[in-house]
Amino acid sequence: MAVIEIKNVAKRFGDYQALHDINMTIEDQEFMCLLGASGCGKSTLLRIIAGLETATSGEVWIGGRRIDNLSPKDRGISMVFQNYAVFPHLTVFENIGFGLRMQKLPNDEVKRRVERTAELMHIEQLLKRYSGELSGGQRQRVAVARALAMEPDVILMDEPLSNLDALLRMEMRAELKGVLAESKTTAIYVTHDQVEAMSMADRISVMHEGRIAQNATPVEVYRNPAEKFVAGFIGNPPMNFLDAKSAGSGNWTVAGQSFAGPAIDKAAIEFAIRPEDMAPAETGIAATARVVEPLGAHLLVTCDVGGTLFRAVLDSDLVVHPGDILTLAPQADRIRWFDPETTQALS
């Protein structure tokens, strides 16, 4: 059982507050993604869990044991690094067995575990090679095999796929997910790639400026962003936002149209809708098409609604020209509202 509990963890580098009071629980065998733009503190948090960085305050517990004062090797973790860190002077075999050798396991046990994990990662034919003789994808597999061979409670991954080309990344994504599910380890996976996070994670923690903006399942994060930052960060293209003026009793005027929204006492809030949650209709938001991008499956239309950028993903059979005025009806149950002052979601 390896539940990870992060309690009030903060990190300061000189005057710069990298992490503010992070609290998070990751369940046993859960696959948790830390998602955020570069500089949001996600790697720092991972390195604090790994023991490569010391938190300024707060505690980290793994499996009911406080570990933030232990050295990395005593934490029951292993790690996959962004640049793989596959040792160039050792063979693939010795790389995978590095941690096992450090634990002074007997030779036959090292051999057994190295061969098993190598087979799992489909690199058993590369065991005698050196890192310099491997491709980026193979090196990546060695790095994962090295982490798995330790049979850790927790496996930490710092942008492990970011150095692979797009096709390989897609392939490794699926494979990694399968291998990790089978190994029954708890995984924390740092990435800036929302597709990776959405497709692999059981739960996503979206991080922003050293805080956790939202911690929920991928679908929840996508459908019900907790704050405006999440809505604008997740989704490609991201959510659209329009100003909404109060029309009384929970009704709001958006681009001349009236929509039912939260019944709160405010003069102005923000209306939000995902680009794919709209369709052309008789009545709706009037949007002037500016750029039309046929993407095969869909038609991405970048429009202008009263001076605000507004994107719509429409059926690719539609014929739209720049300058056309579209009338787009949002799907009522997909409309979201945000408070412009706190940037939090309203319901």
């Binding site: 490569l52 990395p72 090797k73 973790i77 962004q82 040792f87 002077h89 941690g99 450090m102 090295r146």
Partner: peptide
């Protein structure tokens, strides 16, 4: 690269082992 030392540390190498297994060979 610093990452080799971090990897060695995570995989259980003591400072002396990091010197003999990473620094010296590299």
């Amino acid at each position: 690269p610093k990452e080799y030392y971090e990897a060695a540390e995570v995989f259980g190498a003591s400072p002396w082992k990091r010197f003999t297994r990473i620094t010296l060979p590299l």
